[in-house]
Design a protein around this nucleic acid. Structure first.
Lengths: 139, 139
DNA sequence: TTAAATCCCTACTGATTCACTTGGAATTAT
DNA sequence: ATAATTCCAAGTGAATCAGTAGGGATTTAA
């Protein structure tokens, strides 16, 4: 039940972008350094977020990345799901899942569904702006 | 964020034991067959649960496994944690975690903590008895 | 008393995923 | 022109997953 570094690093990076939202493009180098992450690895994660439309890029010197929307319109769920795929403890409670067994009703599925829903509730109701506010409040 | 087969199969097995609680030892063969799981693999999972004190075993012909406590006194959290280790989306919010970075406060940690707590709330408040009741209600 | 049914234990294994690294090409500000 | 950046594709060592293999020990039933 651990998140991989994709989701973890990705959210850190998105938080950094949100923190400097409106200040023009931020180069990955800065984020990688401040978060102590391999720049080349982070590049791959941000590429995924870019293709999904959450960040825009500016190439060339003085280029970098910026959020494509306001921080309040991007949720933690958007970011994590983009990088990690659907968040569900078992395949049988993922969207488009095939029926997991011949029986029409399975009790463990009920448990997995509850776990899935509780996690999704948290991540879909926290935006990057919430994280920024939280950060400011604590400094 | 997927659970491995350890936790998934393990919970299914414990549910079967709870369902037949009070009927004497149930052989693994029956559980493995009814849940369509490799018996030898399940054996390893149940061994872990036995060593942790959640099930007792009876050796020899007509032997098998039984819950060591009443179904209402074993939670889903007990079972999953026993087989999968601590449930937390990131190391920094696990018990005994070293400080994740030089800064005293980290925003992503707040998110991970919320996820961790919401999952634990679900699994610690669902017992095997709840699953049995749910099963009976739906048949 | 022997055979069958069961649990118990250790080790091995092929496939997949993780967390990167390598090595460049294309683009743009200075 | 040069340096700073993004963009792209492929390779890699280590770890984990989901078992399998091959036995040994214990108990019941015939």
């Amino acid at each position: 039940m651990r998140l991989s570094t994709k989701g973890r690093y990705g959210l850190k990076a998105m938080f950094e972008l949100a923190l400097h939202s409106g200040e023009g493009p931020i180069p990955l180098k800065d984020i990688a350094e401040s978060q102590n992450i391999s720049e080349h690895y982070l590049e791959q994660l941000v590429a995924t977020l870019r293709r999904a439309g959450y960040v825009n890029s500016v190439r060339g010197a003085q280029g970098g990345y910026l959020l494509s929307k306001e921080p309040k319109n991007i949720t933690v769920g958007d970011v994590i799901r983009c990088l990690e795929g659907q968040i569900a403890p078992a395949e049988c409670v993922m969207k488009d899942a095939a029926d997991c067994n011949r029986e029409s009703y399975c009790v463990t599925q009920t448990v997995w569904r509850k776990i899935r829903d509780s996690v999704n509730e948290v991540i879909d109701n926290t935006t990057l702006q919430d994280m920024v506010d939280d950060h400011i409040k604590n400094h």
